[in-house]
């Protein structure tokens, strides 16, 4: 087995399994530890300049990456006209630079503010390091290996598909420049640290908020009336009855 086989044929499965199993275990057994761990209370002004570009830039770019990998046809169709290709590339680069600016502010904030430094753990620094490598290599690729949205689908989609079909073909990426390889490897690192660090808060994106009524009433005892709907809470707790809304606004 070559090192390329190991890095691009074995590691993705190891980190994938880790990410899924540990996240599930953590969710079921240590849900208290799952939090965004916001430090806005301690420092707000620098956070404004860091957090918004970082989060929005990164989540939009990440979504575009997933679209490109899952439905590459969409990208191929879009990039049919050169003008639209330029538009997409410029948008991608701008978002990348925006996120880069954001993470730089966040790192500076951690080191310059005493209070934020107090709540900074080694795992926070690890997360920042991994994401920083990802953003830097991403921006590098956008500038140095232009039209990634065009050639990317041809290069990466077969490789990612080979992983998902459990017939890994690391040879597909063997000849790529090291910057591209680092970008991919740093994503594997991202997956590896994901379940063990605050990154896990990504899965808690509260989309259920849109579906629920404003108010929430919970009863300990099973009431004798249809006032509350039976339900169960997460974790190992016994069933608790979750109530319906009070004010349906």
């Amino acid at each position: 087995m070559t090192s390329n086989d190991f890095l691009f044929g074995v590691i993705p499965y190891v980190v994938g399994v880790l990410a899924i199993i540990v996240t599930i275990l953590r969710w079921r057994m240590r849900q208290f530890t799952v939090s965004s761990l916001s430090s806005q209370l301690l420092e707000s002004r620098k956070l404004y300049w860091g957090s918004i570009p970082f989060h929005w830039g990164l989540s939009i770019i990440l979504t575009l990456h997933f679209i490109a990998l899952i439905i590459p046809q969409a990208f191929e169709l879009w990039n049919g006209a050169p003008l639209r290709l330029y538009l997409l590339e410029i948008t991608g680069l701008a978002l990348g630079l925006w996120a880069l600016f954001g993470i730089c502010v966040l790192i500076w904030r951690r080191y310059s503010d005493q209070r934020v430094m107090t709540v900074t753990t080694k795992s926070d620094l690890l997360v920042l390091g991994v994401v920083l490598v990802q953003i830097i290599t991403g921006v590098w690729i956008a500038i140095g290996y232009r039209w990634g949205s065009y050639w990317g689908t041809a290069v990466f989609v077969p490789y990612v598909r080979s992983l998902f079909y459990f017939q890994p073909n690391p040879d597909l990426v063997a000849a790529l420049p090291w910057v591209l390889k680092t970008h991919v490897l740093s994503f594997f690192a991202f997956l590896a640290v994901f379940p063990f660090t605050r990154l896990v808060h990504i899965i808690t994106l509260p989309l259920q908020y849109f579906a629920r009524p404003w108010q929430k009433v919970v009863a300990n005892r099973t009431p004798s009336t249809p006032d509350f709907e039976p339900n169960t809470t997460g974790g190992s707790r016994a069933p608790v009855v979750v109530g319906a809304d009070d004010s349906r606004v």
């Binding site: 849900q31 808060h201 300990n220 974790g235 979750v242």
Partner: peptide, 21 residues
């Protein structure tokens, strides 16, 4: 966060809180 049905006490489920503030 929820309101307890039997006595109206408003409580935070610390397991479910994600720190959105």
């Amino acid at each position: 966060i929820y309101k307890r049905a039997e006595d109206g006490v408003v409580l935070v489920n610390e397991d479910k809180c994600r720190g959105w503030r």
